[in-house]
Nucleic acid binder design. Structure first.
Length: 586
RNA sequence: GCGCUUGUAGCUCAACCGGAUAGAGCACCAGCCUUCUAAGCUGGGGGUCGCAGGUUCGAGUCCUGCCAAGCGCGCCA
């Protein structure tokens, strides 16, 4: 309907041009919106207001001319000029009821579209370091990313979901060393645990497992380990140099091969845990991309060589710098350190080069908001690699600030004091967790009150939407119990008898669903879908309380059943996209 | 100090490329269960859209300045 009206306006616009009211060079900018107020009709356009200036007339006069030039359409029963120059369209109510039929025919496919035209989009999200279990901060990125991906797929994009595994680098060495030190404690060695090491219980668990299978094979005496190691911070030293020395000590005492065992055990155990966790959270990936792989197959070398060939690199103070400040970054960045090692940034350039080489039409990176300062340098790298940086869209997700009632929950991966995503899921369930996470705009700081989310009360909005679905199911069960049959065809034939205000309202809300999906997807805003589902549920609950569905008049009854089944279908489609269950009874 | 993000009802948040009277939920007050599940519904109070300018037919939305909060500003990842 919206497109139809846009077409009519476009027609009028062309006529305005030929009659000379508007200059030939003016580009049409036709905007048709659904009205907020029913007295403004069903659709509205501000075309006359926006064009008044270029047409050098006042908006009202222009609007009159446009209305006069509009072609007839059997579904448009009235066109009005209103306010400062709005053109309001009133649509034939009977035509609107067709949506009920359409929803029934299209079923789970209702709302899907092909705006994406099969374009390849890569969505990378979560990508947390495999140095510990996912915490509730990662949960928001996981929920948000997976829904963004699903929405894009729903509107016709070819979506590739990916997790970048940072399985190389210093953090992993700290993990491996942490595990080894815990293992030595299990063996009975007495030695201090570095303040900068990973302290979580999961580190101990991995150490225990290694000891169970390998016994004392990796045991080394404590004296050798602490010998000549620079002091840790609590003893007045520097925690970074201390932990780095411990890593080197672990490597020398164990040798490359045995050290590797700890590294791999840590990585494998934690990565498996993350994979299980995400799967149980309803988050799927097409690919887990390894940073190590990138280092080993020479991709980083190639990426750096390409930057060098493009004249984007220079040497200074013994390091190799990328001149990113010429491409919008605030300063230049090191890609190869003085010690000859690549920086994390270098492998990230290689990773993005790899993404570009795989031929995606659009790349979407979803990061925690604390990484926002990283955006300009990655964009600069993409430009330097010869690609339009608009190909990369970086979406930032603000951290959820955790509360228990009024008390703020402090979190730190290193100290091991954090609430894991798994704990959250166990406490509130997958559905509530997902719903909460995507309920807000992603850039919005979010307060996540564990007390509130864990209380299974009606304050939890997910129940409200699910309950609407369950109620429809309940009505259908009642229908059976009364021994009545639902006559689908009769219901369709009588759909125009749904003249109650609540019914008309519900029909227009249902008709909006495809538009909501499209906008939510193209703007990467899942919360729009959530808002919509809440609105639909409200309209349904209101209707439910105002009118009886299972009435004696079979024609009305069937028409109403068809309407609420359409509601059920749209709730199912929408909740399905959010990967939230639709219980038939609650 | 510089940069990014945010600032809307007591609290948590919406508001479609700038559109018509800024909307929900929670909390609060008053009502609705012999009728399809009361995890529901109806009504009510509650707002200088952080502050001050500007742009225009029109600004919560765009621009400038200021205030406040969060984050970032490594040869860490």
């Amino acid at each position: 309907m919206k497109q139809k009206i846009e077409g009519l306006l476009l027609h009028a616009f062309a006529a305005l041009k030929t009659s000379g009211v508007i200059d030939q060079s003016v580009v049409p900018n036709i905007v048709v919106e659904r009205t907020r107020d029913a007295s403004h009709g069903d659709f509205s356009s501000n075309m006359a207001l926006t064009l008044a200036k270029t047409a050098k007339t006042n908006p009202k006069q222009l609007a009159e001319k446009i209305i006069a030039l509009l072609p007839q359409d059997k579904h448009i029963i009235n066109v009005e000029l209103a306010g400062p120059g709005f053109i309001n369209f009133f649509v034939d109510r009977n035509a609107q009821y067709d949506i009920i039929k359409r929803i029934h025919n299209e079923g789970p496919g209702f709302g899907l579209s092909n705006i994406g035209a099969g374009k390849k989009v890569q969505v990378e999200f979560v990508s947390a370091n495999p140095t510990g279990p996912l915490h509730v901060g990662h949960g928001r990125g996981a929920a948000y990313g997976s829904v963004v991906a699903d929405l894009l797929e729903a509107v016709g994009f070819n979506v590739h979901r990916e997790y970048y595994v940072n399985d190389a680098g210093r953090q992993m060495d700290i993990l491996a060393t942490s595990i080894w030190l815990r293992y030595l404690e299990v063996c009975g060695e007495v030695l201090p645990f570095p303040s900068n090491a990973y302290r979580g219980d999961y580190v101990r668990d991995i150490a225990w497992n290694i000891h169970n299978t390998a016994g004392n094979e990796y045991r080394r005496p404590a004296e050798l380990i602490v010998e000549n190691i620079p002091l840790d911070e609590p003893q007045g030293g520097d925690k970074e140099t201390h932990i780095d020395a411990m890593i080197v000590r672990a490597k020398t005492l164990l040798g490359t091969s045995l050290y590797r065992d700890f590294f791999q055990m840590g990585l494998n155990t934690i990565l498996e845990d993350i994979k299980d966790d995400l799967e149980e959270f309803g988050v799927d990936y097409q690919q887990w991309f390894s940073e190590q792989q990138l280092m080993e197959d020479g991709s980083v070398d190639i990426a750096v060589a390409r930057l060098r060939a493009g004249g984007h690199l220079y040497e200074q103070d013994g390091a190799v710098w990328f001149a990113s400040s010429k491409l919008g970054d605030e300063k230049d960045r090191v890609v190869i350190r003085e010690n000859g090692q690549y920086t994390y940034f270098a492998s990230d350039i290689a990773y993005h080069m790899n993404k570009l080489d795989r031929g995606f039409d659009q790349i979407v990176d979803i990061w925690g908001a604390d990484h926002h300062g990283y955006v300009p340098r990655i964009k600069a790298a993409i430009t330097a690699l010869g690609t339009d940086e608009a190909k990369l869209k970086v979406l930032l997700v603000q951290f959820a600030i955790l509360y228990r009632g009024d008390e703020k929950v402090q979190m730190s991966t290193r100290s091991g004091e954090f609430v894991t995503l798994r704990q959250l899921r166990n406490e509130v369930g997958k559905d509530a967790a997902r719903f909460f996470y995507v309920m807000r705009r992603s850039e919005q700081h979010m307060d996540f009150d564990l007390k509130l989310a864990t209380s299974k009360s009606n304050e939890n909005p997910v129940f409200y939407v699910q309950y609407a679905y369950a109620r429809v199911c309940s009505v259908l069960r009642q229908l059976d119990e009364k021994g009545w049959e639902r006559n689908l065809l009769s219901g369709m034939d009588n759909r125009t008898r749904l003249t109650e205000e609540h019914e008309v309202n519900l029909v227009t809300i249902l008709a909006r669903y495809p538009e909501v999906l499209e906008r939510a997807a193209l703007q990467y805003e899942p919360h729009q879908l959530v808002q919509y589902l809440r609105e639909l549920a409200t309209a349904f609950h209101t209707y439910y309380n105002a009118h009886q569905f299972l009435v004696d008049d079979a024609q009305i009854r069937d028409a109403r059943l068809n309407l609420i089944c359409a509601v059920k279908q749209v709730l199912s489609n929408g909740l399905g996209l959010l990967n939230i269950t639709t219980p038939e009874s609650m």
